[in-house]
Amino acid sequence: MRFERRAHPSRALTILAPICAILLALLLAGGLIAIAGANPLKAYRLILTGAFGSRLGLSETLTRTTPLILTGLAAAVAFRARLWNIGAEGQFYLGALAVPAFCMLPLVSSLPGPILIPLCLMAGAVAGMVLLLLPLGLRLKFGVDEVVTTLLLNFVAVLFVSLMIEGPMKDPMAFGWPQSVPVPDAAILPKLMDRARLHAGLPLALAVAVAVWWVQARSVFGMRSRAVGLNPRAAAFAGVPLGRTLVAVACLSGGLAGLAGAVEVMGVKAYVTTDLSPNYGYSGIVIAMLANLNPLAVIAAALFSAVMFVGADSMSRALSIPSYIADVTVALSLLTMLVAIFLAQYRIRR
């Protein structure tokens, strides 16, 4: 048995493959739910009603989709250029921490919202960028593989956040809880729904996704970053500046992850803790792969993950199934998606 690349993968197959992959992942996770002694169909119905069935559920789902779109984009743009940024988690945290840190500067907190909000978002993005430029620098200068360094820096970043919120950025009004000073009211993103957490971060994330899609598909930079990913030597021969393109990709990717952190802290929590992110950075990798690195498909993949996470929370309360089933399903769907994309591109020959 061997595999042969299809010359022209059919359109139907390319569209059908991801759907089959998700269904297979749901089927496998359904098996795990059945083993735990619950009816999988009932569980999935509860997940759907939990995520969409009420105004509050819908708000939670969309609130959760917002950072996932941004971290998904962060991974997608990096992976396109074969820059293995596995550090979105750490970049998210630094991006979040940058917002209260920036607002602590003299004069900044008295700025009016329309000026302060974009500045805070930028501060978050820059913090994320810096954390990714570090390992990229090590790769370009010393030939250190960035996979391991970005992974290790995630732990360093969270410890740094912990250090800051227990030290110079500690909120004195928090009764000794380790949390950062709050973000001033002027920097809080406007709410989109009454008495619900959904905030202006969602339209922002959607706009960013479209912008990233445009940059990837239509700009010289997008073409170069794809070329660097597909074949760095050929790209270099064709005159693509390798180092500079990678630096630009790293700025975009780290910036998006940092932006995710800033949006989360300005939209939802208003202060930083070390449990701000339920693995948004790592989920972003899955989402990027589920979307096959397509920035617009990232939106759908992020929504799928958010539905699983929010829905599983309410399902687990009703059926006493551990809510970790959501993480299991999403991780499984990554693996099934990889196989599905492969089968859409190759045919099996005996």
Binding site: I86, Y282, I285, M289, A331, L334, L338
Partner: peptide
């Protein structure tokens, strides 16, 4: 191998 390995880790 990168993505599969990360997938295995998450799973």
């Amino acid at each position: 191998q990168h993505v599969t390995g990360l997938g295995i880790t998450l799973f």
